[in-house]
Design a protein around this nucleic acid. Structure first.
Lengths: 226, 226
DNA sequence: ATCACTCTCCCCATTTATAGGGAGAGCCTC
DNA sequence: GAGGCTCTCCCTATAAATGGGGAGAGTGAT
């Protein structure tokens, strides 16, 4: 039973990268782990999608930046096809936006190519157990991105400046617009006339330089008002 | 010169918390650090704002949850008054939203009250050197919040399912609505009649279970469509 | 060939939102 | 006490969106 369990729990790994050297390097690294077995390697996203034995894969390790369809697109299609395995994406240091996309698609782990290989092994074990794994430098980047949200940076800076230009009442109305209430409903909630709400609406659209209520909603969302 | 430098670099700390016991406890903890000196303690946000020697403060350690005006509001007013010192906010575990607000206001550090006191010491040293500090459990929470964005959790899960129910054309329209275009403009862009766009609008509102165009915009934003 | 679905477009009516203007009351500041 | 700002509310008018219905053309699957 224990022996069988060992066999059963051996993790089936598939690797995807368009650089063969990296592919082979990782394969040889993972072959040193006695609970892992690389059962497939692919040199393109298309190749993974075409393979028939996708169900066997426990953990898919895939590069994000690939020629042809990239890792994100591949993951997207895989998920659409009902792929249930865990996915770890390999990224470069400047790929935070892509990581973000990947998160939305349900990727389980992210490891930078600059990481020590032990991190990849950790990542595989961790995502196999259902957790999410980020390599340390990605973690750092996420934290930085979080703390930079309201810091003195380009767009965000401007938006925050604008945010402070809004009056209390405008903020009240803005939040409620972001919650999909009509002017009538907002008027009732705030005990003011609909015409007043409409005035605030007009002023908000002007101040925030958006086109319509959708723009107001987006502003509210992006600034954490709702 | 070295001695003078030592004196000069001694960090002037101010503590703000409406619980006197915690205030005194922290003060005694920090008194053990030879590069720190607690120069002020306050039992309310109002008290900090009223004090005149704000310029002397290198690092302000302040509770978020206080009776009267809270730490966030106090920080906001301080920044508005031109306060230049670093600020570390003490939070409880469930305050991630507040942390988010605080970030936007330019707070430099966050330490949970449940943290070991050594973390607070680390935080003070770190923010004094210009960096941002999060205590480990807050870091974890941020990372979790990040990774939960697109995970198989409650709402999000449903949203992702719904997203796949949309037809190509509905997606086209949805994206353009999210970009604040009117039905007329969308019709022109897609070379179809306004009435068709309106039909897609209706179906989108039903499928996505939102109230109006603002809801459509928010859905588009939250699902990375725009 | 029938069914299901998508995309297209139309009718109707009503509600909401946008755009322009004005204006009084209250509050704070200089 | 004169401005400046916010908040309140009004007018008029048009544009936009919502909600209900129906319906034909095309596509693909059974």
């Amino acid at each position: 039973m224990q022996v069988k369990a060992m066999v059963d729990t051996k993790l089936n790994i598939a690797l995807v990268d368009d650089h063969k050297i990296l592919l082979e390097g990782i394969e040889s690294l993972l072959s040193l782990e006695d609970n892992m077995e690389v059962i497939q390697t692919h040199e393109s996203g298309e190749s993974v999608l075409a393979t028939e034995s996708k169900e066997d894969i426990d953990v898919l390790v895939m590069d994000i930046n690939m020629s042809g369809i990239d890792g994100i697109q591949t993951l997207e299609k895989l998920k659409a096809d009902g792929f249930l395995g865990k996915t770890i994406l390999l990224t470069t240091y400047n790929d935070l936006k892509l990581v973000n996309e990947a998160v939305d698609l349900g990727a389980s782990g992210y490891v930078t190519k600059g990481s020590a290989s032990s991190y990849l092994v950790d990542a595989i074990n961790q995502v196999a157990s259902g957790e999410t794994y980020y390599s340390p430098d990605i973690k750092e980047k996420i934290l930085n991105a979080f703390s930079r949200k309201g810091k003195a940076k380009d767009d965000q800076q401007k938006e925050n400046g604008i945010l402070r230009q809004l009056t209390e009442r405008e903020l009240d109305v803005l939040k409620l617009i972001g919650q999909q209430f009509t002017s009538d409903e907002i008027a009732n909630k705030l005990y003011i006339a609909k015409s007043t709400v409409d005035t605030h609406r007009k002023n908000l659209i002007n101040k925030l330089k958006v086109k319509n209520a959708v723009g107001l909603g987006l502003f509210a969302e992006r600034n954490g008002l709702i």
